[in-house]
Amino acid sequence: MSAVPDRVHATLRVNGEDQQVSFAPYKTLLEVLREDLNLTGTKHGCELGECGACAVLVDGEPLLSCLELAVQCEGRDIQTIEGLAKGTELHPLQAAFADHGGSQCGYCTSGMVMTAKALLDKEPAPSRERIREALAGNLCRCTGYQQIWESVESAAKALREGKR
């Protein structure tokens, strides 16, 4: 049986910066981001992979940080909501969510925005159906999703028009 250490030390690349971090080995990426790196923009709603609130991008793909063991993340490129804006200038998705009702209570917003970013990185002009499919792993209890779809469409348009 392999010995279980109290802490593991790792270098995680988060939002383009290498972060030296030491954490209990049972921790998921979600726990390390929130508790050890103070990146509380990433939320949690179930911790069992059933809601999408904790979605972050790992190597560009939206993953659930509540199911991703932090020890598996060394050497991978992790992007969270905190890394999306350029200085004080919001990413078009962030601006659109704020302007078009995509965010009400704001709790699902980080996961939604990160998931939408991965979609728009691959598909600059997704149909409403594609947006609905891509966001099907993110529950929202406030909006009824419609203003989220509209926010993503608005941001896609802004991005296509070179607003970033």
Partner: peptide, 23 residues
């Protein structure tokens, strides 16, 4: 008039502090 809600920016950038975000 349609307007960005006053707390919209903080929510969109993950800066809104919900209770479990407090340390």
């Amino acid at each position: 008039k349609p307007r960005r809600r006053v707390d919209g920016r903080a929510k969109a950038i993950g800066q809104t502090r919900f209770a479990d975000d407090l340390v």
